[in-house]
């Protein structure tokens, strides 16, 4: 049992309602299934749709029982938004990796100037001993055609660290889960992020 547990890859997605986090979690799950792994996921819904904090667990391996994992066991944190990444930083293991979208989405208390947004999120991750891959996923999404594909751009950056899942598995997952007319643009956002 304990050996099998070590073979599981623990991913965590953090973001803001409206960024398409659930879809990116689904595409990641589908790609891992296509690569022959067992997968379990867990998402929050509900109130979180309204610009609140959202997250999703994604675990794949030979056999996965639980959809969640304890703090300190995460391998990669996919932060669709920097502050939300910081919020779930304790989930990562020592030396774990953060795939970080550098574009902030300011929470209401910051917009109202009652609280300050963290000055340098990237530095906070690095100080915590984590490896950070930063990208401006919004900019890549806009290059690919519109602002709504930051989630898929983030998967492109994530996929660089998951060589056990082929690019073609990701592409097929995107084709299966994204509306047909948006597949080409999403694949482009994915590819732009892979090129870095």
């Amino acid at each position: 049992m304990s050996k099998q547990k070590n073979a599981i890859v623990n991913l965590f997605f953090a973001g803001v309602g409206g960024q398409g986090l659930v879809l990116s979690n689904q595409i990641q799950a589908r790609a891992a299934l296509l690569a022959g792994f067992d997968v379990k996921t867990s998402d929050v819904y509900g109130l979180a749709m309204r610009g609140g904090s959202v997250y999703g667990f994604n675990r794949f391996g030979d056999q996965v029982l639980s959809s969640t994992f304890a703090a300190g066991l995460g391998d990669i944190l996919v932060a669709l938004e920097p502050l939300e990444g910081l919020r779930y930083l304790p989930l990562l293991r020592a030396g774990g990796r953060v795939v970080l979208n550098t574009r902030p989405v300011l929470p209401s208390t910051v917009l109202l100037e009652k609280q300050d947004y963290p000055a340098n999120p990237e530095q906070l991750f690095t100080q915590a001993g984590l490896v950070v891959d930063s990208l401006d996923a919004m900019s890549l999404s806009l290059q690919a055609g519109n602002a709504k594909m930051t989630n898929v751009a983030m998967l492109g950056a994530l996929s660089l660290h998951l060589p056990q899942i082929s690019v073609s598995a990701y592409t097929q997952a995107i084709e299966e889960l994204v509306p047909a007319k948006l597949v080409a643009a999403n694949c482009q956002a994915f590819e732009l992020a892979r090129r870095g």
Binding site: G72, A94, P107, S108, G129
Partner: peptide, 19 residues
């Protein structure tokens, strides 16, 4: 034991907002 998780000061909260 579970691994010791990295600790940060509590980040700014994010309450839902009207779209």
């Amino acid at each position: 034991p579970l691994p010791v998780a990295a600790q940060l000061p509590a980040p700014v909260p994010r309450t839902p907002m009207m779209c």
